[in-house]
C-alpha cells in the first residue's frame, strides 16, 4: 500500500494532509483557550493529531464528529500532562473516549462565559480594571503599565494581584448578576 493510500485510511476519505489542514485551526483555538500561550498550544495540537490519527488508523474507527473527537483527545493529552508532572500518573486511554463528550466544558466559543468574565471585570474598581486591562488584555509589561498609570512597578504588581483575587472570588461565587 502506498503512503497516499495508507493516508486515505484516516476518516475513510480524508488524507492526513486534508485532516490537518481542515481541523488544525479549530483544534488549536480550543487548546489555546485552555493554555493561553502559543508555544504550548502548538505542542498539544500536534500531539493530539498524532494520537487521534493513530487511534483512528489502528482501530479502523469511523469518526462521525471529527472536531469533537479531536477536542476530546486534546483534553486527554492535557490531563495526561498534568498527571505526568505530578509524577506517577496513569496514561489516558483513548478507548475510554466517547464521541460527543468533547462538547462538555468547551467554553472556547461560549458567549455566556465571556459575559461572565466581562461582568466580573465590571465589578472591579477603576484602578484594578485599568491594571488588568493593560497587563493582561493589552499585554503591557509592568514598567510600561506603571508609567501609563502613574504608579510604581511594585504597586502594579500588588494591584493586579488584588484584582485577580477579587475576580477569582467573583467568578467562583454565584454573585454574578
Amino acid at each position: 500500500m502506498t503512503e497516499v493510500e495508507e493516508n486515505k485510511k484516516v476518516e475513510g476519505v480524508m488524507t492526513i494532509e486534508e485532516l490537518c489542514r481542515e481541523y488544525w485551526e479549530p483544534l488549536y483555538r480550543f487548546v489555546y483557550y485552555k493554555v493561553q500561550n502559543r508555544e504550548e498550544a502548538e505542542d498539544i495540537t500536534q500531539e493530539t493529531f498524532v494520537k487521534a490519527i493513530s487511534y483512528i488508523q489502528e482501530n479502523r474507527t469511523k469518526v462521525e464528529n471529527v472536531i469533537g473527537f479531536l477536542k476530546t483527545v486534546a483534553l486527554n493529552v492535557l490531563r495526561d500532562r498534568w498527571r505526568k508532572y505530578k509524577r506517577r500518573g496513569n496514561t489516558g486511554n483513548l478507548d475510554d473516549i466517547s464521541q460527543g463528550y468533547a462538547a462538555v466544558n468547551d467554553y472556547s466559543e461560549s458567549t455566556v462565559q465571556r459575559d461572565l468574565i466581562l461582568h466580573a471585570l465590571s465589578k472591579l474598581n477603576e484602578k484594578q480594571k485599568s491594571c488588568i486591562e493593560l497587563r493582561i488584555l493589552q499585554g503591557y509589561t509592568v514598567p510600561e503599565t506603571a508609567q501609563m498609570m502613574g504608579i510604581s512597578e511594585g504597586n502594579v504588581r500588588v494591584l493586579q494581584y488584588r484584582a485577580l483575587q477579587r475576580l477569582s472570588k467573583i467568578l467562583k461565587s454565584d454573585d454574578v448578576d
Binding site: 485551526e25 488549536y28 483555538r29 489555546y32 483557550y33 485552555k34 493554555v35 493561553q36 500561550n37 502559543r38 498550544a41 467554553y107 472556547s108 462565559q113 465571556r114 468574565i117 466581562l118 471585570l121 488588568i132 493582561i136 488584555l137 485577580l164 475576580l167 477569582s168 467568578l171
Partner: peptide, 13 residues
Amino acid sequence: TVRQVRSLKDPKL
C-alpha cells in the same frame, strides 16, 4: 483567573 481573562482576547495564531 489570568487564563480566563486572557480568553477574552483572540488567540495568537
